[in-house]
Structures are given as C-alpha cells and as structure tokens.
C-alpha cells in the first residue's frame, strides 16, 4: 500500500461472532465452561486452560482505563490527520483487556482509573469498531 488508510479489521472464523456482535451494538466475549474465565481476543480454545468449551456471551461493556496516552504523531497519514487522539489500554469488568480510543472527552482529560463504557463507531459497511467513553 503506497497510501495506507486506516486499518479496517478483516474478520476470521474465530472472530466473526465478535464483529457480528459489534454490528448489533453488543460487545461479545468468549466464556470458558471449563475454567469460567472470559477471553479476548477470541480464539478457538481457552488460553487459560486449553479447553475448547467456549461460548459467546454479551459483556457488560464497562471497564476502567489501565493506562492512556495522547498520540501526537503517526507515520500513517490517515491517523496523523486525526492527532491528537486518545489511545488507551482498558480492563473490562469481566477481566479481559482491550486497546481502544477513548472518545467523548478531550484526549488530555483521559486518566488512569477512569470508568468507561463501550460505544460503537461504524467504520465500514461490515465493521463497527468498539470504542469507549467515560461513564
């Protein structure tokens, strides 16, 4: 790609259910029947206990910021056009972590420990990205 745009996820067999949930406004996680742990990102077996007894469940969509930064530079022109933007690592109430953008608040006001809730942002006809805002 000579002029890379924003990176749009391409679902796989393991992740299709997650992206289908996002399209419907629902954050879905895998839950392991063997060890009762939630899993994200999705894969075909549980990385905690190796069981394949996974089911999809709707998550609360709530979590807290573990760490955050304000991005002021990107080598990718599509992202550089949007600086400064917030990038954060969050922990969902169910346990798994996600990398995300915190929206709905100036990026400089995002703080570690901030309580956040999922919002969905359509970025292509097929893909809706989960992002988070303060709650």
């Amino acid at each position: 790609m000579d002029k890379p745009g924003k990176l749009i996820p391409v679902p796989t067999a393991e992740t299709a259910e997650f992206w289908a949930g996002c399209r419907q406004g629902e954050l879905r996680l895998q839950l392991c029947a063997a060890c009762n742990k939630y899993q994200f990102p999705p894969q075909s077996f549980c990385r905690h206990c190796s069981s394949a007894e996974l089911s999809w469940v709707a998550a609360s969509g709530q979590g807290r910021v573990l760490s955050c930064t304000v991005v002021h530079w990107s080598p990718n022109p599509a992202y550089a056009a949007e600086v400064p933007y917030s990038l954060a690592l969050i922990e969902l109430d169910e346990g798994p972590r996600m990398l995300t953008n915190i929206v709905g608040v100036p990026p400089s006001e995002v703080r570690t420990g901030m309580q956040v809730a999922v919002v969905f942002e359509q970025c292509s006809p097929e893909i809706t990205l989960p992002k988070f805002k303060p709650r």
Partner: peptide
C-alpha cells in the same frame, strides 16, 4: 500490532 484488535485504533 494485532490487525483486528489493535491496529484500527492507531497505535504507534
């Protein structure tokens, strides 16, 4: 970074 779960958010 992960093409589905990290890259879309613009991590440098």
């Amino acid at each position: 970074d992960d093409p589905q779960f990290e890259e879309p958010y613009g991590p440098t």
